[in-house]
């Protein structure tokens, strides 16, 4: 089923607002990871505002779906989504990466809505397998969505986790791979080639799907489809690092961003122009 333009536009508009929040957060924090935050922004928007079952007033709600961020460095987009969803006051975004503040430079349990402590790449999918196993043992229907980066598929533990999800046929586990082709020191295929991740997941017994990670209709239809699959599912989301900011797109040097006022102004202007198209 195709989603209506009204519904898709509402989500698209929201994603620009979240991106504007991220630029402002990183400006106040003086630094942070932006390339991956923007490549995964559309999927984060869909997960938090359409797909997952969540209750911001009760973050530990037993019936919730679990959204986990394994590549914790892209957390500015997570925090922007959690704040807008109502997990904590939006003012907290002003204190990202600052001492005595709620929002740590990498996600930590204890921040409302955060489901895993991350920052060491390659551990999040295993933690997701753990939660999925617990749910399976108790025959509970909750879903576990684990967001991973393509770069962290260079960590061996990621493949240990992939192997184990297949062993227990975890049909409540969905991994999203942000296939943006960049990592901190260069392009993934130059640093350590990852090759065809879809085929690799399939050879480990998973259902794997290649999608355009910026096409809202495709993203939402894929999440609908995976709910019917009785196996662990990998969504390889082909994305653009730094998406929507003309001077950042696809460039690995914006993986980590030391902001400067000129770039901030330019980025905000570009995002505002996109946002204005909806008015």
């Amino acid at each position: 089923m195709d989603y209506s333009k009204v519904e898709l536009d509402a989500l698209r508009k929201l994603s620009y607002e979240l991106k504007i929040d991220v630029i402002k957060m990183l400006d106040k924090a003086d630094s942070g990871h932006i390339g991956g935050a923007f490549s995964i922004a559309d999927i984060v928007t869909c997960l938090y505002f359409k797909v997952a079952n969540l209750d911001p007033q009760n973050p530990d709600w037993d019936e919730r779906d679990y959204i986990m961020l394994s590549n914790g460095h892209v957390c500015p987009i997570l925090y922007a989504a959690l704040a807008r969803k109502g997990f904590f006051p939006k003012e907290e975004l002003n204190n990202l990466r600052k001492i005595d503040s709620l929002l740590q430079g990498h996600p930590k349990l204890g921040i409302p809505g955060v489901e895993n402590t991350s920052g060491l790449l390659g551990q999040g999918l295993s933690q997701g397998v753990g939660i999925a196993l617990g749910l399976t043992m108790d025959s509970k229907p909750n879903k576990v969505y684990v967001i991973t980066s393509d770069g962290e598929h260079q960590e061996g533990q990621t493949w240990e986790a992939i192997m184990s999800a297949n062993k227990w046929s975890l049909n409540n586990l969905v991994v999203i791979v942000d296939r943006n082709h960049v990592q901190i020191d260069g392009n993934t295929e130059d640093i350590m080639p990852l090759g065809n991740l879809k085929e690799k997941y399939e050879s480990f017994g998973w259902i794997a799907l290649d999608i355009n990670g910026h096409d809202y209709n495709e993203i939402l239809q894929t999440f609908d489809f995976v709910k019917k699959i009785d196996q662990p599912v990998a969504i390889i989301a082909h994305t653009i690092a730094g998406e929507d900011i003309s001077f950042m797109e696809r460039l690995y040097k914006y993986h980590d961003w030391k902001d400067d006022p000129v770039e901030v102004e330019k980025a905000l202007k570009e995002l505002q122009a996109e946002l204005d198209k909806f008015n």
């Binding site: 895993n116 933690q127 997701g128 939660i131 749910l135 986790a161 184990s164």
Partner: peptide, 25 residues
């Protein structure tokens, strides 16, 4: 049903345990 054989993968074992613990086990 409460025994999980993880195979020769101690890192995976530890992180799975941490996920199980977050869930409440």
């Amino acid at each position: 049903e409460r025994y999980l054989q993880i195979g020769v993968a101690e890192q995976n074992m530890a992180s799975i345990a941490i996920g199980l613990s977050h869930y409440g086990k």
